[in-house]
Design a protein around this nucleic acid. Structure first.
Lengths: 215, 215
DNA sequence: GGCGATTGTCAGGGGTTTGTAAAGACGCGT
DNA sequence: ACGCGTCTTTACAAACCCCTGACAATCGCC
C-alpha cells in the first residue's frame, strides 16, 4: 500500500512497485490508509509523512508494528527519522528519492519481515488490534486488558465488522444462550468494551437491531 | 550489552532489544564495556565503533571472539566493515539504521551462535534463560534449581511464549493426562515456578483459560 | 416538544476461578 | 523398612468476573 497525497509521486511509486511484480494499492490520505488496512491484507506500507489530516506518524503509530512500514519524507531531518523509527517504521527514504532505491528498500524490508515469526491470527479494525493466540488487544498502540467475555464479544464483533449483529445473535454466539431472555448483559459488556478501548465510535449501536463494529 | 556513547541511540537500541525479550545492559564507553563483560554473563555485544577512549575496534579485539559482536558505525565505509569482520565481528549495521533491523540481526547472530558446539539449545524470555541440554535455568543472572516437572512445565510455557496455554493442554503435554480430570496440580506447579523464578509476571494467568508466558 | 420504547449506566451480591499452605501419597535408593 | 525428595491432593482464602435490577439518558416518532 502506498500512502501519498501527491498524485505525481504516488503514481510514480506505484508504477515502480508494479514493475517489480508487486500489487500496489494507492491511497491519498491517512484516513483512507487505516480504512483500507482494515479491509485488505497488506504486506507493507510505503508511508508519506506529510499528509493532510492524519499524518504519517499517526498512521504509523496506529499500525503498531503489525505491518512493515517504509517512511517517505520531504525533509532529510534526523529528528523525523528517529521519531519514525521509534514509532515502528522499518526503513526510511528521503525525498527526493530514486524510485529504484525505494523499490530496493521495499524488497529488503519484505525479505527481513519474512524472517520474523509469523504474526499469528491477528485482526485489525481501525485503531484496534486483536491477537487470538495471545489473547491480547491493543487500541491506539497501547495494550488493553480484557476479560474473557469482553474478549469473546469483541472477537465476534470484529469478525463481523461492518455488519449489524443482533443481541440474540451475540447471546447465542458469545454466551451460548438459547432463549433470547430479557437481560441487559450485552449492553453492559458493550459499554465496558467501549470504555476500555477508548474509541466509543468503534462499536456503534444500531437502534432496534443491535450493534455494528466499524472504523 | 549495548556499547554506545550517544544517549539517544543507546536508549533506542535498548528499547528495541527489550521489546524483543532481551535484557539489555547499556554502557557508554569501551572501558565500561570491558569491565562489565568481566562481571556479567553477556550473550552478545552491540558495539559502536566511534567511541571516546578505547574505540570499538579495540574492544572487539579484546573480546577476541569470546562473545558474538554486532558492529555499529556512523560511516558506511567498506574499509570499516572489513576491519571489523577481521577483528571477529559477526555482523555489521550502518547508521542510520532501523532498530528493528538491528534487533533482527541480533536475533540472527544469536541463533547462529546457538549452533556452535559449546552452547546447547537455549531459550530466553525476558530475564529467564532455559538450557535444555544442560537442564539449567537461570533467572536474572542467577541459577535456579528446578525439579523435573517444573522444568518441563517451564519449557512448554517458554516454547509457546506469548500464546495462551490451557490447563488441559499442559496436563496432556507435560503430565500425559488424557482426561481433563479435576486437579489443582497445574496451579500448584505454576505457583512454585513463579516463586522460584522470582518474576511473578513472567507467567501470567489468563482467567478462564490457562496461562501465558510473556516478558 | 412530549411520549414510549430502547439503550446506557451504576453498584453490589453471588458464584466461579485461582492462589496458597500443608498434609498425604508415591517412588527411589540405601 | 526407612528416609528423603518430589508430586499430588485437599481445604480454605482471596480475587475476580458476571449478572442483575433499578434508574437515567437518549432516540424515534408523532
Amino acid at each position: 500500500m502506498v500512502v501519498e497525497d501527491d498524485a505525481n509521486i504516488g503514481a510514480l511509486v506505484r508504477t515502480y512497485l508494479e514493475r517489480d511484480g508487486y500489487r500496489a494499492l494507492w491511497v491519498r490520505s491517512g484516513e483512507a490508509a487505516l480504512t483500507e488496512l482494515a479491509r485488505h491484507p497488506v504486506r507493507l506500507v510505503v508511508l508519506d509523512i506529510g499528509l493532510p489530516g492524519i499524518d504519517g506518524f499517526e498512521v504509523c503509530k496506529r499500525i503498531g508494528g503489525q505491518v512493515p512500514v517504509v517512511m517517505l519524507t520531504a525533509r532529510d531531518e534526523v529528528e523525523d527519522r528517529i521519531v519514525g523509527l521509534e514509532l515502528g517504521a522499518d526503513d526510511y527514504v528521503s525525498k527526493p528519492f530514486s524510485p529504484r532505491e525505494l523499490a530496493a528498500r521495499v524488497k529488503a524490508v519484505l525479505r527481513r519481515a519474512a524472517d520474523r515469526p509469523a504474526s499469528g491470527d491477528v485482526t485489525t479494525l481501525g485503531p484496534v488490534t486483536l491477537a487470538r493466540a495471545a489473547r491480547e488487544v491493543r487500541a491506539g498502540g497501547r495494550e488493553v486488558e480484557l476479560t474473557q467475555r469482553e474478549f469473546d464479544l469483541l472477537e465476534y464483533l470484529l469478525r463481523h465488522a461492518g455488519q449489524v449483529v443482533t443481541r440474540d445473535e451475540l447471546l447465542e454466539a458469545v454466551w451460548g444462550f438459547q432463549s433470547p431472555g430479557q437481560t441487559r448483559t450485552v449492553e453492559v459488556h458493550v459499554a465496558q468494551l467501549r470504555k476500555k478501548l477508548g474509541h466509543p465510535n468503534l462499536i456503534r449501536t444500531v437502534r432496534g437491531l443491535g450493534y455494528k463494529a466499524a472504523a
